[in-house]
Design a protein around this nucleic acid. Structure first.
Lengths: 151, 151
DNA sequence: CAAATATAATTTGACTATCAAAGTAATTGG
DNA sequence: CCAATTACTTTGATAGTCAAATTATATTTG
């Protein structure tokens, strides 16, 4: 099998299943009541004191309506708090609860482990190669995006 | 920023958005009436003469009920044909129509372009490095899977 | 061979994630 | 001060998914 074919095969499999795989990994652990989507919202809210709904919706790339229901559920599950801003009462600020911060850290660790596994046995030159490839993939999608009118 | 952080940042972004990105790319082209999920079913059926429903469901990692409705839609859209096996009348065989094969090839080309972009400017040693890294990532997930009882 | 069991697929009922559009409440700019 | 804008929520719809019930057929077994 050529290098091209090998790379294609692994990339296709990783890309097609990555969210699924990540969700399955999530379900093994302590935060099994979170979907991968919810974990990504938690990841995006992050450890910063507070964020607005609209900033978060934009960052997670969902409509604000979608985020409202997602946050409703995360509040029910005890991961997020919501309060109305007193400066501008249209604005809603959200932040992670203590449990939310624990979930955030757990997810962060998962990614750190992944990267450590990915980079193991690579010397710094090889790490540079990987970064070049990932940047190329990034640019491939940006280029396609451009035609889709996304940039 | 360290190499670890850079790799983490790009991987997280790619993994979190990859299906979304691929779907958006799909919507630019000729096969805009297909979702990325449907394209992956088409990809899995492939160019081989015929497949059973159960084999396909297993490969795509959905229940057979889910596949039934997916195939219903793909038939409506003209990408897939379905017939009952005459050897075993419980079995349903599916295969791509001519339009289905065109969609398949278009998707294949997309992946080929992606890999070509990814590998551009790499010499063969560097390609080997990439394969090593991708294999590491693959194994990281396999290892996690094992604990989840997936293997 | 007839009945019980197993298999392949479909149907049903439920749930999550999503969007667009309509609605509500608050702020801002003329 | 009121028209337009902004921030968010609600509503109604769709896609994708599963588990469990159902249907049809095949296989096993007493």
């Amino acid at each position: 099998m050529s290098n091209h074919e090998t790379v294609n095969e692994i990339l296709v499999r990783l890309f097609a299943n990555i969210l699924d795989i990540e969700e399955k990994c999530l379900k093994i652990g302590e935060f099994a009541d979170l979907s991968i989507t919810e974990m990504h919202v938690i990841d995006n809210i992050g450890l910063t004191s507070e964020r607005t709904m609209s900033d978060t919706a934009k960052a997670v790339k969902v409509t604000s309506g979608t985020l409202t229901t997602a946050i409703d559920n995360l509040i029910k599950k005890g991961y997020v708090e919501r309060r109305r801003s007193s400066e501008d009462r249209r604005v809603v600020k959200i932040r992670l609860t203590e449990r939310g911060r624990e979930a955030y850290k757990s997810h962060e660790d998962f990614h750190k482990d992944l990267v450590t596994s990915a980079l193991q046995q690579l010397n710094s030159h090889e790490e540079e190669v990987l970064i070049k490839v990932l940047t190329n993939i990034d640019e491939f999608f940006s280029e396609k995006y451009k035609y889709a009118g996304w940039y």
